[in-house]
């Protein structure tokens, strides 16, 4: 209990550092380019347009609003993918600092995932534009969006901690994870309807691909105007919390040895 209190205390002591790190990431991303924030929206929009042109013909019959279908999936997947890729490097990338001064190491991972989340929220502007452009109806259920983002945020944080820790010990995890990331993207129904897959694969994805829970739930509230079923909600929470526990457990267990490998 005392240890817990101490941890919370140090977390608050470094809250300004987290704020500085997050604002640094966002500033660097948006400020130094000509179009600034517009890029944050334009980028997912352009990719969406390309993919719509390519894939919409294939799946037209099954999907009612392909651009929105695609963008909902992409936004969440990009959030998870970007935050874990950056989170993976968060400890190793700050080694110069960690070697010189004591800072709780999870701060850097935490800050990266957080800035990715804010980035995602900003990119949601693209989704709104597409919904208006395609005359997609706005449902009340969309108000539940933050709940889904938080679940995915917790999940990404847990996974990032695990990857950041592994990266310290094995630097080639980075490349292995890149391959995993690509496979993961194809095994997630981003631009195809899950129904078009064979039954067995469908079942496997619906159970074991955590992203399915978040994306399916997101599409429910945005595209179909309905509340997700309990399986999607609870499945999403369980994945998020289990991942966080795994990540925190291994991170805490090995954090004192990090310095020896930096």
């Amino acid at each position: 209990m005392k240890a817990m209190k101490y941890r919370i205390h140090t977390f608050f002591k470094y809250k300004d550092l987290i704020r500085e790190l997050v604002s640094r990431d966002l500033k660097l991303k948006y400020r130094r380019s000509f179009l600034g924030y517009v890029w944050g929206i334009l980028n997912p929009l352009l990719i969406m347009i390309v993919q719509t042109v390519v894939f919409s013909a294939m799946f037209k019959r099954n999907i009612q609003n392909f651009p929105v279908y695609l963008l909902t999936g992409r936004l969440l997947f990009s959030f998870m993918s970007n935050s874990t890729k950056m989170g993976l490097k968060s400890v190793v990338g700050n080694q110069a600092l960690l070697k010189k001064t004591y800072i709780p190491k999870y701060i850097f991972t935490f800050a990266k995932v957080t800035s990715c989340m804010i980035d995602t929220v900003l990119s949601m502007g693209a989704l709104l534009i597409v919904m208006i452009a395609t005359r997609s109806p706005f449902y009340l259920t969309m108000l539940a969006t933050p709940l889904i983002v938080i679940r995915l945020y917790i999940f990404s944080l847990g996974l990032s901690l695990l990857l950041a820790e592994l990266e310290v010990f094995f630097r080639d995890i980075e490349y292995i994870y890149q391959a995993v990331d690509v496979a993961w993207m194809y095994l997630t129904p981003l631009f195809y309807p899950i129904e078009s897959l064979p039954n067995l694969v469908q079942i496997i994805i619906k159970t074991l691909n955590p992203l399915y829970y978040y994306i399916a739930a997101f599409r429910d509230i945005v595209l179909y105007g309905r509340l997700p079923g309990p399986r999607l909600i609870w499945g999403g929470w369980i994945w998020a919390i289990v991942m966080l526990i795994i990540g925190v457990y291994f991170f805490q267990k090995n954090k004192d040895r990090f310095i020896l490998y930096l």
Binding site: K13, Y14, D16, L17, R19, E20, L21, L97, T101, I103
Partner: peptide
Amino acid sequence: IFLNGSVLGYSR
């Protein structure tokens, strides 16, 4: 200055 200060644990 603010980033480095926060690295050293000082509040904003």
